[in-house]
Amino acid sequence: MRLYLLLAGARLRGQTQYRVSFALQVASSFTSTFVELLALLILFRTFSSLGGWSVGEVAFLYGLASVSFALAELFGEGLEQASRMIREGEFDRVLTRPVAPLLQVLAADIQPRRIGRLAQGILALALAGRWTTIDWTPLKAALFIGAIASTAVVFLTVFLIGAAICFWTIESSEFQNIFTYGGTELASNPLQIYSRWLQGIFLYIVPLGLTTFYPAAHILAKPDPFGLPPFTPFLAPLVAALFLGLGLLIWGLGLRQYQSTGS
């Protein structure tokens, strides 16, 4: 942990040398995500509900997904750089050091410009707070924090799996976008509006539905369209941990593959 902070800190200090650019990048990260929120609000001008959810309720789900994704992006940037590291042979250096490769990759890059998306997610949550009346209890608050952490872990794991796949083939790295950017987009809307197989994928394979939709539905007191057990919303941390375990397993296999082929 201390080593991660040291390494990530070094990376940050390196970046601050390009400060002008940094401000612009934060601004562009904010606007790019802000217009998405704006688009949603514009549609709600014409339509009154999405799958039985009001604008405030959708904004809540949207904010939850955005904040989590922003956190994952903030800390997972190094994983996104993994394909470049592997392609350019930088990964060899990682393997000559007496520190876990995953830690080195995570610490290789950190992108504070992602706070643009974070700000936008918080804005969505604030709007949701105005437009809905949530009956907050300590349990709901804990569930809310847990949902954000779990979703961030699920996204991080998607980055991790994406990075691990680069050990086999660099060609497929673009497919990852479906589960990251596509995943947030999907997790921003009530799950029942999607087709059955999409629901299946995002409940049981990349379990974003279990870490965003279910906790949000519970907090907002919305009915469960799938009739899963009532404790389902509280499974989020467990599900995220299991998914992370799977990701680490694939990463380990990838590392072995790399060591036998040298990319």
Binding site: L50, G51, E174, I178, G182, N189, I193, S195
Partner: peptide
């Protein structure tokens, strides 16, 4: 990726 996003956007409009 284009197709997937098309699917998501379509689902939103259908709903």
């Amino acid at each position: 990726t284009n197709g997937f996003f098309g699917l998501l956007r379509s689902s939103v409009f259908i709903a």
